[in-house]
């Protein structure tokens, strides 16, 4: 086995397996940047996976399926927004409820779609020209998903928006210090609603990717914990869209390697590494004195003009 095959397969699989993680993480980063934790990612993803499959199968167009997933994901996130932003409920509990509900509800609705392959899965993309490059061609530009490239592009755009535009300042200020933002005339509630809905739409597409492209079929609980990995990656990435790309690649690269290295390492250890890594990264950041990574008002409901 030559080194080339290891590089190619690891990168190629890291991108493919990482795509739903990237979409979900980018969405959750925006929600948390606005100050709201949404532990309902798994629930929004599974609802997205189901609706993408059902629509794609009924209409025959996987893109419409993904659109439906985005809408459903955003809708589910709005429930969370209603509870946590308007009704100021505990964000962790509301998110857990969304996950429990989403897993159950998608299973109920999806019962009659089990065991049917998707007729028109999302086509794969091989980039002309670039795919002919040695090593990098097969690693990055052959048989990838459109969503992989869109996701990477979005990571850059979302980074620019967050750090280089007025919108970004608004979102970050809402997450850091909503009272100050409010005093400056920012509609804190609206920003939080929009960021949560955006995060939900991204999670919906992440789930949709699983059912119309990654494994074009619907089965009960097919997200299999991906949503929780997204939550870990959000923190691992220190709420930064570009760092999310590296975090996702590291995580999914390790996940793939767990199967290539199985003969030498117990797979359980490779599988627990990303989680241990997430803690380690935060601990190292802490050692360096960088304690203020998290948005200041993360997890705290905002109450206008009251104390």
């Amino acid at each position: 086995m030559d080194w080339e095959s290891w590089v190619v397969s690891t990168l190629n699989r890291a991108l493919a397996y990482g795509t739903p993680l990237l979409w979900g993480t980018l969405g959750e980063i925006y929600a948390e940047r606005a100050g709201v934790v949404n532990l309902g990612v798994e629930g929004m993803m599974i609802l997205g996976a189901f609706s993408a499959f059902a629509v794609a199968q009924s209409v025959g167009d996987p893109w419409l399926g993904l659109l439906a997933a985005a809408v459903v994901g955003a809708g589910a996130a709005l429930i969370h927004a209603l509870f946590t932003v308007t009704l100021r409920a505990n964000q962790y509990v509301s998110g857990l409820a969304l996950t429990i509900f989403g897993l159950g509800f998608s299973g109920l609705l999806g019962a009659r779609w089990v065991g049917i392959p998707l007729a028109n899965p999302l086509p794969k993309l091989t980039v002309p020209g670039l795919s002919q490059l040695p090593v990098l061609g097969p690693a990055l530009f052959q048989n990838q998903s459109y969503l992989t490239y869109i996701g990477l592009f979005l990571a850059v755009v979302l980074w620019l928006v967050l750090y280089k535009t007025r919108w970004g300042i608004v979102i970050r200020s809402v997450g850091e210090s909503p009272a100050t933002a409010d005093a400056l005339g920012v509609n804190v509630f609206l920003v939080r609603y929009l960021c949560l809905a955006f995060g939900g739409a991204m999670a919906g597409v992440a789930g949709g990717f699983l059912s119309v492209e990654y494994r074009p079929a619907w089965t009960e609980g097919m997200t299999a914990g991906t949503g929780w990995i997204v939550i870990a990656l959000t923190i691992f990435a220190a709420w930064n869209p570009l760092r999310a790309v590296w975090g996702v690649l590291l995580f999914s690269g390790l996940y793939h390697l767990a199967y290539r290295l199985q003969a030498w390492f117990p797979p359980e250890f490779l599988k627990l590494m990303p989680y241990a890594f997430a803690i380690l990264v935060l601990a190292i950041a802490g050692l360096r004195g960088a304690r203020q990574l998290a948005p200041g008002a993360l997890g705290i409901p905002y109450t206008r003009g009251e104390k």
């Binding site: 699989r13 397996y17 089965t219």
Partner: peptide
């Protein structure tokens, strides 16, 4: 499904 897919891909790479 995710694990089955990546395990298959690892075998293909082998």
């Amino acid at each position: 499904p995710g694990a089955a897919k990546e395990a298959t891909e690892a075998l293909i790479a082998e």
